[in-house]
Structure formats: structure tokens, C-alpha cells
């Protein structure tokens, strides 16, 4: 992917750029809002990573301007620690996802991949299928190898999220935000507990495991190779 990083802190920008390059992306950097706006409007990027606080044109304004000009490039918004309103404001301005600084690189990488694949993701299939697992969004039923599986509401939402991103690493924070709508860090192991229950229902007793833990990053649901 061709990615533009608009970040005024040189050390953070280098950290993001280096990591993304190692993952095989092409990365450009802009140190202020004006340069960022110029590059974002002109070059054909696949993803913009925009910091909230920028000299010149601030991040929020940049995203609004870019969207106003009809550029549909996905935007990942970087907000500061504790910035409660930044999340809402960023999403309202047209950002597609947000990440609170400081973050682990694995978190950023997972989000970058998710946003990159979004373009190729099939538009809201009624039935999601991975290997021999099928989830019907309308009937709200799940079956594996023809056997029905009964899931609770949250387990269903969790599986739906994993299956719609099959093959992609999803982090604990992404799950908390998108499945539970928790925009804070809970002090109990909610994700782990529910994930282990889901695995118990979806994977236990079947020959191939579909849900995998990715150490230091999160989880992935994928068909066996």
C-alpha cells in the first residue's frame, strides 16, 4: 500500500514509517498540515495516517478538507492520550478509524491492514463463510460442517466481526471498540473470556481450528491451509 503519514513529531513519524516499510508498504511523510494536505490531495494514496495535533492546518481540518475535496482515501486518525472528544470529532470529520497515542506497533499494523483491505472486502454479504463455518446475518444462525451452533448475542457479534475480517489480525482494542462499544480499557479480561467461550463452541470437537491467537497482536480467524 502507498501510505501518507502526517505527523509533526519526527521520532513518532520515523517509528511509524520504518515499521510500515518493513511490512512492505510505501510510506511518505509530511511534518505539517499544509504539506500533508498538498500531498493527500495530489498523490494517489491508499491510506492516510493523520495526527490530531499538527502545526499549520490541524488534523481535524485536514481530514475535513480532504473529504470535502471528494478524496475517499481511508483515513486513520491519531488522537492524544485521554482525548475523549477527539474520537467522535475525528469520525465526524470523515476519518475511518482512530488510534489513541501512544500505541503498540502491532495495533497500528492491524488497523492499517484492516483499512487497506476494506476496499476489497465484499459489501455486506448476508451469509459469511470461512472453510466449513457459515454465519447467516439475517437469520442470526451459525453452523459448522452442517451442525447448528447456538451463540449468545455478544458471541455472535464477535464471530461476525472475526469472519467479516477473515485472515486479518484483529487486536483486543479493535474488538472492544467494535464488538462491545467500549472506548476505554477494562480491567478484567473480557475479550479473553468471551473469545475462549466462542472457541469452545466454534472450534472444539472439529478437526481444524479456525480462531487463532497471534502473540502480542490479537486474534485471527482463517481457513486452515
Amino acid at each position: 500500500m502507498k501510505i501518507l503519514v502526517v505527523e509533526d513529531d519526527a521520532s513518532t513519524a520515523d517509528y511509524i514509517a520504518r515499521g510500515l516499510k518493513e511490512q512492505g508498504h510505501v510510506v511518505d511523510k509530511a511534518a505539517n498540515g499544509r504539506d500533508g494536505l498538498f500531498l493527500a490531495a495530489g498523490e494517489g494514496y491508499d491510506l492516510l495516517i493523520v495526527d490530531r495535533m499538527l502545526p499549520g492546518v490541524d488534523g481535524l481540518k485536514l481530514v475535513k478538507t480532504v473529504r470535502g475535496a471528494g478524496v475517499e482515501t481511508p483515513v486513520l486518525f491519531l488522537t492524544t492520550l485521554g482525548g475523549l472528544d477527539d474520537r467522535v470529532a475525528g469520525l465526524e470529520a470523515g476519518a475511518d478509524d482512530y488510534l489513541v497515542k501512544p500505541f503498540a506497533f502491532a495495533e497500528l499494523a492491524a488497523r492499517v491492514n484492516a483499512l487497506g483491505r476494506r476496499a476489497s472486502r465484499p459489501v455486506q454479504d448476508t451469509v459469511l463463510r470461512v472453510h466449513d463455518l457459515a454465519l447467516d446475518r439475517l437469520k442470526r444462525t451459525v453452523e459448522r460442517a452442517g451442525q447448528p451452533i447456538t451463540l449468545q448475542n455478544q458471541e455472535f457479534r464477535l464471530l461476525e466481526y472475526l469472519m467479516s475480517r477473515a485472515g486479518e489480525v484483529v487486536t483486543r482494542t479493535m474488538l472492544l471498540e467494535n464488538v462491545w462499544d467500549f472506548h476505554f480499557d477494562p480491567k478484567t479480561n473480557i475479550v479473553e473470556t468471551h473469545m475462549s467461550r466462542l472457541r469452545g463452541k466454534v472450534d472444539r470437537g472439529f478437526d481444524a481450528e479456525l480462531i487463532h491467537t497471534v502473540r502480542g497482536a490479537g486474534y485471527v480467524l482463517r481457513a486452515p491451509r
Partner: peptide
């Protein structure tokens, strides 16, 4: 940030029963 009361604009009516039932499901497992 909460104490500075800057977030009143996010106020809206919501179904607190549904919220608690959902939280109940989340934490019953834990």
C-alpha cells in the same frame, strides 16, 4: 476532561436497560 464538563453536547436519551443487559452479558461470562 470529564470534570471540565466539555462533553454535555454528547448527551442524548438512550435505553439504559438495554445497556445494562448488554453489560450483564459481557460480565456474566467474566
Amino acid at each position: 476532561e470529564i470534570e471540565s464538563k466539555a462533553r454535555r453536547e454528547a448527551f442524548a436519551p438512550f435505553d439504559v436497560s438495554a445497556l445494562l443487559v448488554d453489560l450483564g452479558e459481557t460480565y456474566a461470562a467474566v
